[in-house]
Amino acid sequence: MISEELKHMYYQALIDKKSEYEGIFYVGVKTTGVFCRPTCPAKKPKFENCEFYGTAKEALLASFRPCQRCRPLSHPNYVSELVQKLVNAIEENPEHRWTEGDLRNISVDASTARRQFKKRFGMTFVEYARARRMGLALKQIRRGNSVIDAQLSAGYESGSGFRDAFSRIMGAAPARLEDQQVLKASWIDTPLGPMMAIASEEELILLEFVDRRGLEREVERLRSRTRSAVIPGRTPVISSVEQELERYFAGELTEFKTPVKLLGSPFQKMVWEQLRNIPPGQVTSYADIAAKIGKPTAYRAVAQANGANQLALVIPCHRVINLNGNLGGYGGGLSRKQWLLEHERNNLTEEVPL
């Protein structure tokens, strides 16, 4: 999360059009729904209408679309015709899931598109398209709008673009939600970046950082297993975990008490329960967990179960490292994993009394 002091510094750089800040931050403008580079020639927004991001992907996930004047997804002073062609194609149909066949239909080589997008702004074309789709849904989750308000404010003349994007990611067209089991999703800001929580009235089902790779697929699997649609909103469970997260990051909580629903195989659930037994401030290995559940040769399956965890922090998969002491993987990113481990070692080794 960007500090207030840094936000003011970035805003002054935006006002002064300081070129040395190119690539350091992007600014999302709430009133227009676009995000820009620091040197954008457009009229400058008020500070309260700005949101600042370290990467273009973060801006996309927050639902902002690239500015057509400063073209933030292109290298300064150079606009790749291929990149711009594909960005425009996505903006014409943001909810579409792109395949190699789609690229061939518009005479674009998939490997070339992947390489140029990766070179220009650090993510592939598919990752960009996915982030744009997720941004449409996360925008409404973040605002907590009603479905009807969300449809009207989505930025499409007909509203069909939002309906399609919402349906593809969250499971049902807004007009049909009343006939299905419904889960609520909410945006939770944390010091390590925003998270998305999905819950019923009684149990927390998903808690992930919104920039986690594969989050869209996780939501799809969740709604398929529960036969539910997901809409913006809050439940008592989401309020509970939000309060616990606040205490966790303040160094005041070592164990989450919010009720959870585990969606997995019996083996996965056994691994996840074992993860919850790892004390904060300590780490273990996949091999150690395999031994504790009575399956010492199943350390690879333990690693897969660890990666399939959908309740970040609540089920502390970040406390599992490689046997050689290396951090290993983490769906939320290794920098977050390192931060969490240090935070727990420094602040959470002893429970703070209520």
Results as ranks from 00 to 15, higher is better:
E95C: 08
A172M: 10
L82D: 05
R71Y: 04
R71A: 03
G135D: 03
P174H: 12
W98Y: 08
Y53L: 09
L82A: 07
V79T: 10
P72C: 07
T112M: 12
P66E: 07
G54L: 05
H75V: 12
A185H: 00
P174Y: 11
S80G: 02
M123G: 06
I90R: 14
S80Y: 07
I169C: 08
Q116V: 15
R65D: 10
I148P: 00
A165M: 01
A129M: 04
K118C: 10
D164V: 15
A56H: 04
S107Q: 14
F117I: 02
S80H: 02
Y156D: 15
R130I: 13
K184P: 04
E81Y: 05
T99E: 06
L183H: 06
F117S: 04
H96C: 06
F162W: 15
Q180V: 14
P76T: 05
F52G: 03
A89Q: 11
I169L: 13
P76D: 14
V182C: 06
H75A: 12
D102E: 10
F162S: 09
G171C: 13
G171Y: 09
L60S: 13
V182Y: 05
H96S: 09
R120N: 13
E81P: 00
K139S: 14
G122D: 13
R168V: 09
A56P: 03
E157L: 13
F52N: 07
L136G: 09
I148C: 01
R71E: 06
D109S: 14
A137R: 00
E178V: 11
A175C: 11
R163M: 15
A89W: 11
L138G: 00
A110H: 11
V108S: 10
R65M: 10
D149F: 11
L183N: 00
L86R: 03
N77F: 07
A56N: 02
F52T: 04
E81M: 08
M134R: 04
A89D: 12
R163T: 12
F166K: 05
A154V: 00
H75G: 05
E91F: 12
K139P: 01
F47E: 00
A56R: 10
D179A: 13
A175H: 13
S111P: 01
F64P: 10
E92K: 15
S63V: 00
G155T: 05
